[in-house]
Structure formats: structure tokens, C-alpha cells
Design a protein around this nucleic acid. Structure first.
Length: 365
DNA sequence: AATGCGGGGAA
DNA sequence: TTCCCAGCATT
């Protein structure tokens, strides 16, 4: 018997491991259901994949439940109000995903007859769907033999083959290796198996190599520290920006809010008035940036870390007695503040000025 | 190829 | 603290 016959292919070993360690996730079809012929709903697969972009499974779960309850089909989501979608997405981050999610739902509902394209190319033509997501939906929802490459798979592949090329330059090489490895049968399960392997065994730090179904095939294990893979280019340090935020409260407890422009940082989300966020402290990043004259009281600072900079916001609050000329914006009643499309940094700023701002409804009775 | 874009959990 | 997560769009 040849070596090839005695040793199972890595893909089969990984699929066997997957079957023994199946994770029950809200967007997955359980093995018993799959055995009865139930196939994944492309809408739910798409929604979960978009939410999971650069986002952990734990963070996604409650949002996935909310969206699928409010909008059970892609048609429902396509007909939804833009602002309702942004409000429901608030807190999940990367808000361009929410804007593209809505555009994509409209495209599928109104230009594709409510049916998702079943090919990688067709999917990739839709807003918010790139290389990874197109391959993942094609494999998982339509059983296509596409090469699914995400951060987990990059780690698994880079270790299995001891790839020395640093990311992101190594991606084409990695995709070719994944493509060669992807089986004809169960390509969707294989893709999920590779991601589960990266998430639970082949982890960034202290991987559980002893439990790995393909440890015998790994070119790094036993030779070098697996934590050194994948190779990555050095990253630069985050600059600091400063600014001011103004929380105005009227006699009813309502807070003055505005809407940010649809593009760029926190695009389309709600905010409290504030200064620009700049690298240098100057007159425009303090009290001088107040939206209207009032008895502004300094009440500390809030720090928030974004992907590419750290923000230090000086917080000011005031009680406004009568009507003020406040420019663009509106007074949001305190009872409905929590339902607004407020990103986390804005909730932090409001809490700093009004500690119980988001607990008033719960504490009222 | 490089950059902008959130937020939170794990070690 | 640091890392990085089922990445995409734009330049």
C-alpha cells in the first residue's frame, strides 16, 4: 500500500473533525436537519457573513436574532426604512456594512427577483460582498467549490505550509493552496470546518496543536513557534486626536442630536454636536466649538479607540431653558434615546454627561 | 499596495 | 497593554 492510500487527505481529516465538533450557530443548519434535506437559507447566510466581517461570533449573535426577527426575508429588509436599519446596526461597528447591506437587499429584491445569485461572480457584483463573502456564500449556501479565505483560514494555511511571505502579499498563494485543498463533496462544510479549526484549535496564540486533526501534515509544528505564523508586516502606532462634544439637555430631559453625513467615519449615524477631531489641541477643539451659547459645564473626558486613531473627547453639558437656535438637529426625548443610531463613542459621551441617560426607562417604574 | 473604517473579547 | 476577529471600498 502506498503512503497516499494509508494516509487520509487533509481535507477529509478536517471534515471528520468538523463532524465530531459541530458548533451550533443560529445561521447554520444542524446535522440532523441537513440529513433531512434542509439546506441553508441564502438570506441568512449572507446576513451572517456580512455581520461576521471583522466581527466575532459572540458579538454578532444578538444582532442576527434582531435582524432576522424584524426582517425575515431579503424582501422585508429591502422594504425597510434606511434609518431603522442603521438604528438596529448601532453598536456593531463598520457602519458602511449596514449601508451596503440595505443596498444589497434592494438589488436582490428588485433586480434579481428576490433570489440571491448562486455564483461567486454574481455575488461579488453586489454591494458589500467581496472576495471572502462571495466565496463563503457560494460554498455554504449553494454548495459551490469555491476557495474560502478569511483570517482563520489564512492562519491555518500559513502554518500548514510554513508560508514565509508576509500578509497581505501572501493571499494569492494562500488562495491557490486552499483551492487545491477544497473537496468536491461538501465544499460548504469544508469552508466552515477550516474556519472553526482556526477559531478553536489553530488559534493566534497558544494553538492546541495536540488536538489538531492535521498536525501530522503541519510544516511549522515541531520546527518553529506556530505563533510566528502567518508572517505579517509591522504595523504603525495609532495617532491621538482630540475634540469636544456637547450634551445639551432641555427641561424635559431631551438631548440635542444631529445626523452625521452618510460617508466616512460613523457615516449616517447619529451624534451629539461637537468640534472636528484633530491631531492638535487648539481653540476649535474646546468650548469655542459649542453649537450655541449656553452655560456649558466641563465634565471630564471620554477616550475611545478607533481602528486608526485614539480619540480624546472633552465633554461639556448644559441645561437649556427655552428654545435655542441650534442649527441642524433635533431634541430627542429621553425615553427613546436608546433607540437612536448612536455609535458607541456617542453613547459614552452622553453617559459621561448624564450617567443614567440610557437607564431612565428601566428605572422609571 | 496602502489606507480608512468599530467595537469588544481574550490572553 | 496587545492582538485580532467568517473584510470591503476606495485611492
Amino acid at each position: 500500500m502506498t503512503q497516499a492510500h494509508r494516509t487520509a487527505a487533509p481535507a477529509d481529516l478536517i471534515l471528520d473533525w468538523y463532524d465530531r465538533h459541530h458548533r451550533d450557530l443560529p445561521w447554520r443548519v444542524s446535522p440532523p436537519m441537513a440529513a433531512r434535506g434542509v439546506t441553508p437559507d441564502p438570506y441568512r447566510i449572507w446576513l451572517s457573513e456580512v455581520m461576521l466581517q471583522q466581527t466575532t461570533v459572540q458579538a454578532v449573535k444578538s444582532y442576527f436574532a434582531l435582524f432576522t426577527t424584524r426582517w425575515p426575508t431579503v424582501i422585508d429588509l429591502a422594504k425597510a426604512d434606511n434609518e431603522d436599519v442603521m438604528k438596529s446596526w448601532a453598536g456593531l461597528g463598520y457602519y458602511a456594512r449596514a449601508r451596503n447591506l440595505k443596498k444589497c437587499a434592494e438589488a436582490v429584491a428588485f433586480e434579481h427577483g428576490g433570489v440571491f445569485p448562486d455564483s461567486e461572480d454574481g455575488l461579488k457584483a453586489l454591494p458589500g460582498i467581496g472576495d471572502y463573502t462571495a466565496a463563503a456564500i457560494a460554498a455554504i449556501a449553494f454548495n459551490r467549490q469555491s476557495a474560502v479565505l478569511d483570517g482563520n483560514v489564512e492562519r491555518v494555511i500559513s502554518r500548514l505550509h510554513a508560508i514565509e511571505t508576509p500578509l497581505p502579499a501572501a493571499k494569492p498563494e494562500m488562495r491557490a493552496l486552499v483551492s487545491a485543498m477544497t473537496p468536491e463533496h461538501r465544499p460548504g462544510d469544508f469552508a466552515q470546518a477550516m474556519m472553526d479549526l482556526g477559531a478553536t484549535i489553530c488559534t493566534p496564540r497558544r494553538p492546541a496543536c495536540a488536538l489538531c486533526p492535521v498536525n501530522a501534515h503541519c510544516r511549522v509544528l515541531g520546527r518553529e513557534d506556530p505563533e510566528l505564523f502567518p508572517r505579517k508586516a509591522a504595523k504603525k502606532e495609532k495617532p491621538v486626536r482630540v475634540g469636544a462634544a456637547f450634551i445639551a439637555e432641555d427641561h424635559t430631559g431631551a438631548v440635542f442630536l444631529r445626523k452625521r453625513i452618510d460617508s466616512g467615519l460613523l457615516g449616517g449615524m447619529t451624534e451629539v454636536p461637537g468640534s472636528a477631531w484633530t491631531a492638535r489641541t487648539d481653540g476649535e477643539t474646546g468650548l469655542a466649538a459649542a453649537p450655541f451659547p449656553a452655560d456649558w459645564q466641563a465634565c471630564g473626558t471620554v477616550t475611545h479607540v478607533f481602528t486608526h486613531f485614539e480619540l480624546r473627547l472633552s465633554i461639556y453639558r448644559s441645561m437649556v431653558s427655552g428654545a435655542v437656535r441650534a442649527g441642524e438637529g433635533w431634541w430627542q426625548p429621553k425615553e427613546t434615546l436608546d433607540g437612536e443610531a448612536l455609535p458607541t463613542v456617542m453613547k459614552k459621551a452622553i453617559k459621561q454627561a448624564i450617567p443614567d441617560a440610557f437607564e431612565r426607562v428601566a428605572n422609571r417604574e
